[in-house]
Amino acid sequence: MLMLIGSLITLIGSIFLFLGALGILRMPDVYNRMQAGTKATTLGTILFLAGLALGYSHCTCWPRILTLILFIVFTNPISSHALARAAHHIGINLTEKSVTDKLAEDEAENGEKL
């Protein structure tokens, strides 16, 4: 019974992982891809690992899974922030649909890269 619940949680997690990858494919520019890529995969990984830890509790010890989940929740936003900052720094433009870009305006005003 516990195994069935765990497997369903894992299934939901894998669907989120798939949607994150689909977002990478479909979104129009780097920043939107980052939004899809980091958010959907964070919850996807949490659910996938939690389901496995629930179903196979005798061979995936839960402290290690918990550490892995904590690590992913902490590092995923940091790595996406670093990449977004680098992408803006080397001058990758936003898509044409975009409304505003305050960061580029301020950089143009100060005459230097922040």
């Binding site: 520019d29 936003l94 305050k102 960061l103 580029a104």
Partner: peptide, 10 residues
């Protein structure tokens, strides 16, 4: 249709 309206705000 991807209904997005993106931009950078401060």
């Amino acid at each position: 249709t991807l209904p997005i309206n993106p931009g950078i705000v401060k």
